[in-house]
Computed example of a mutant assay.
Amino acid sequence: MSTPLRVTRIGHACQLIELGGLRVLTDPWFTQTATYYPGEPLASAVGALGRVDAVVVSHEHYDHCDLDALVTGGFDLATPLIGPGTVAAIARDKGFRDVRVVEAWEATTIGDLTVTAAPGKHGVHEVTFVLQAGERTVFFGGDSLRVPELDTIPDRFGPVDLAILPTNGLCVRPMNDRQVVMDAEEAAGLTAALRPAVAVPHHYAFHSGRLGDRMITRGDRDPRHYADAVARLAPGVDVRLVLPGTPVVVP
């Protein structure tokens, strides 16, 4: 019998992934500022998450590493927190007591869960993650660009059950419109390489506010563009477009 696998998007790239009895929180973001808007209602407050066995954080940007919200929300700071060295320094400063540093292709274990960092590329140093428990494999793409090494994941880890990918192609206007996140077409191309049973897009509702959207960032906020691209490039992959709080069960 397959290990139960489901994911519930809290908002943005913050996901609660459940592999059997193990619960993993990704890239926490529970607050907002004048230029960081989730663009969708959060599915849960920190205090309502319940038990969390591990936190994985892809990079230090506020909308993926909102550790202050975890601290003020009463989160258990003994929970293992896993991320690159840039994240680890912040986590230790916030009082997290079990901080695991992983860089590309390095791994750590929490009980039956293995967390392996995979390469990523963004405006700052970033890793992505492969989560494995039982016979299940999940790829979590943070808000990375597509990099060629990610195409090798099925060869390295076997079949992928669930892929969670950013899709908004975020560009930073003051940096000559530099793209820092994969767009729908690039995410669909990676989906074709990973061939997951189920794919869930995220990191598309975010915006920078009325002024910030004109002066700071621009991005594609419609996940249907990703679903359409997957239908062309990876037919047969089950794409789920869900509101925060709606669990996706992977067969």
Rank of each mutant, 00 (worst) to 15 (best):
D155K: 14
H12N: 12
L70T: 06
G85A: 08
L241R: 00
M215V: 15
G141V: 03
A69K: 07
V124C: 02
F129S: 05
A48H: 09
G209Q: 07
P235Q: 04
A231L: 11
L5S: 01
R51G: 12
T86H: 12
G95T: 09
F30V: 04
G95P: 06
H122I: 00
R136I: 01
R240N: 04
R214K: 15
D98Q: 14
A88I: 08
I110E: 09
A107Q: 02
F96A: 14
V71Y: 02
C65P: 13
P148C: 13
R224F: 06
D220V: 12
A118R: 06
E40I: 03
V249M: 00
F140L: 10
Y226M: 08
V248E: 09
A192E: 09
P235M: 07
G209A: 02
E185R: 15
I164C: 14
T137R: 12
R146Q: 14
L113I: 07
L25N: 08
L19F: 08
R178E: 10
A34K: 03
A205E: 14
L22M: 11
G212K: 03
W29L: 01
D27I: 07
D93L: 14
A104Y: 09
E40W: 11
S144Y: 11
G50W: 02
L16S: 00
F96E: 11
V56W: 00
D68K: 05
I90N: 03
R92D: 12
R9M: 04
L190M: 11
T86R: 13
R240M: 11
R6M: 06
G141F: 04
R173F: 12
A54K: 06
A69E: 05
V7M: 13
A187G: 13
S144K: 08
P41L: 02
M182N: 06
V7F: 08
V198Q: 01
H122V: 00
V172L: 12
G74K: 12
T31S: 11
A187N: 03
M175L: 15
R100M: 01
E135P: 02
E18C: 03
L77Y: 01
Y204V: 01
G73T: 03
Q15F: 09
V250P: 13
S144H: 09
R51S: 12
D53P: 10
R156Q: 08
P41Q: 03
R210K: 12
R136D: 04
R97E: 15
R6G: 07
R9F: 06
G123R: 06
D98R: 15
L170S: 01
P166L: 12
P159K: 11
K121M: 05
T8F: 10
T33M: 07
E103S: 10
V57M: 03
R9V: 02
R240C: 09
G11D: 00
C14K: 03
C14S: 13
L162V: 01
D177H: 15
A118K: 06
I164Y: 11
R9E: 03
S208R: 01
P235D: 04
R218M: 08
A104H: 09
D143H: 15
D155Y: 13
F139I: 12
